[in-house]
Amino acid sequence: MGYMSQTIVSHNSQESEPIRFNRPSMLGVGTMVWLSSELMFFSGLFAAYFTLRSGAKGPWPPAGIKLDVLQSGIFTLILVMSSVTMQKAVFEAEHGRRKSAIRWIVLTLTMGGSFVANQVVEWTHVAFSASTNAFGSLFFIMTGLHGLHVILGLVGMLFLIVRLAGRTNDPGELPVIQSLSYYWHFVDVVWIALYSVLFLTH
């Protein structure tokens, strides 16, 4: 690593003193900068949503569009809770408790995975498609691109688990888990907004 990268105050895996950096890691800064572009990406989708909604001739969502608000609501709650478990994993890792961190990540992974599974079920059960009307297009594009982000996060978690289970003196590990947690929180927050505009407008 470069000469100016973070200085690690202490890195002792048995120690319960939290391992912190004197400032956010370079990877963390990079992740936050990148997430700002992700924010704009979803803003573009929301802009499309509100434009088409305001231009809609009939009711919104159009007649014939039915979504299971409750079921998706439950999985929304699960996804939001997975942010909490992810953060717990970060705390554990910061205290050098890697085994525990792995367990929390596995839990997060399961919750995120169940969210994706629900989405797959939903996609195959709704009575409309992307070509039905503008709402259908928006629904599939928005949930689809969000789902892709969730899947990307899950893949990241898999790699993280492998890394946490491996070499003990790995200085790059903590920045990676912190950065993934930023990403995960971001994906969750975006979903709350998506859920509100796509499901709660009935």
Partner: peptide
């Protein structure tokens, strides 16, 4: 990112029959 989003919508219109930019589909 806005351009990327727009390109994805355009691609969806072209190949998945989406209606982001077609008047007939809203």
């Amino acid at each position: 990112p806005i351009l990327t989003a727009a390109m994805i919508m355009l691609y969806a219109d072209r190949h998945f029959g989406a209606h982001f930019f077609t008047v007939s589909g809203g």
